[in-house]
């Protein structure tokens, strides 16, 4: 349990926080990130098309889904099998998406 939070310690914390938030370096980082993330990554999911080749490509997708229960994940998870060095656990860290 943290020690009881006093008004003075809250004032101090906010003082530091406001300084952090207003730091020009952080602002610049933010701008740079924005530049990098420009654009809209998520699509509108409603539309009125039929999938091209639905009767062929679509069928093959359906066909292999029949075996879903015996399939093995084969993506980047294969890289997660050998965890190595621990990260700086507990630190505040911010990530931005890369452009889609």
């Amino acid at each position: 349990m943290n020690k009881t939070i006093t008004a003075a310690s809250l004032a101090l914390a906010f003082g530091t926080a406001l300084t952090l938030a207003a730091t020009p370096v952080a602002a610049q980082d933010k701008m740079a990130d924005k530049e990098k993330c420009y654009g809209v990554a998520m699509k509108g999911k409603n539309d009125c098309k039929a999938g091209a080749g639905t009767s062929c490509a679509g069928t093959s997708k359906i066909d292999y889904q029949g075996n879903a229960w015996s399939m093995v994940p084969k993506g980047t998870c294969e890289k997660t099998a050998s965890p190595t060095s621990p990260t700086g656990h507990g630190q505040l860290k911010e990530f931005k998406e890369k452009k889609a």
């Binding site: 539309d47 098309k49 039929a50 999938g51 091209a52 080749g53 009767s55």
Partner: peptide, 22 residues
């Protein structure tokens, strides 16, 4: 106006799909 895809039905006759992809 939109694009469509070309396929065939079970008898080999043309069947067009409203695919909006072309």
């Amino acid at each position: 106006l939109a694009g469509h895809a070309r396929e065939v039905d079970a008898a080999g006759a043309p069947m067009l799909i409203d695919s909006h992809d072309a």
